[in-house]
Amino acid sequence: MDKTFPNLAAAVAGIADGMTVMIGGFGGSGAPIELIHALIDRFLATGHPYGLTVVNNNAGNGHVGLAALIEQGMVRKLICSFPRSADPVVFTEAYLAGKIALELVPQGTLAERIRAGGAGIPAFYTPTSYGTDLAKGKPVEVFEGRPYVQERWLKADYALVKAHLGDSLGNLTYRMAARNFNPLMCTAATTAIAQVSRILAPGTIDPEAVVTPGIFVQGIVEVPRPAQEEDLNRAGSVYPQVAR
């Protein structure tokens, strides 16, 4: 068994119009920039996929990665906790123009909804958001004298994540705080695709060091020197390279 894709284009070929796609990362750390750009390349070449629902903590920064995906008009709805960044112009303009829907979710609730989706738990109760606008319409129940809000699981057709090392069975390690949502999203998607800096032979990664076991990963692709969103933005990058 080998889950390795030969290239980025093959890795994102199965993402269809209207699908829900979880994209890992917190800001630029752990963001699978190359997988996102491969999806944009496919859209520019074929007109697909579009109408995507994207789950991410943020809403993109500058004109690369998730921001570029939104700028191409490929995203119908965003589920996120914090749609602001140093340069949020792409999402802000699309949102204020009514071109993209937003479901705002507290960060910990977003993480737990994804975890629940991956763990087969359809709903759970959390103290977070009780008594606030973000709890409107949701069932509330009292446990041990405290009120809690019911939240539903979150699942996806695809997850695009960035890891550090991987093996051909899909076992993954991460680099520092780039871990963030990536391991959770792998569990909650029907098909999780990981870009990694190096693909190793099974047995090379110490089993004690595996963070995401390969059962949660359906595809893996090597991106030896992945771009950092922060560096791209500091260089004023725009994806794809077009006259503006």
Binding site: M176, N180, Q228
Partner: peptide
Amino acid sequence: DWDLINAGKRAVTLRPGTAFFHHA
């Protein structure tokens, strides 16, 4: 190192005893 940032997306540093973990 832009993989080593805080919730404000500003760069931070390691110290003896630092631990990493996922969002859940």
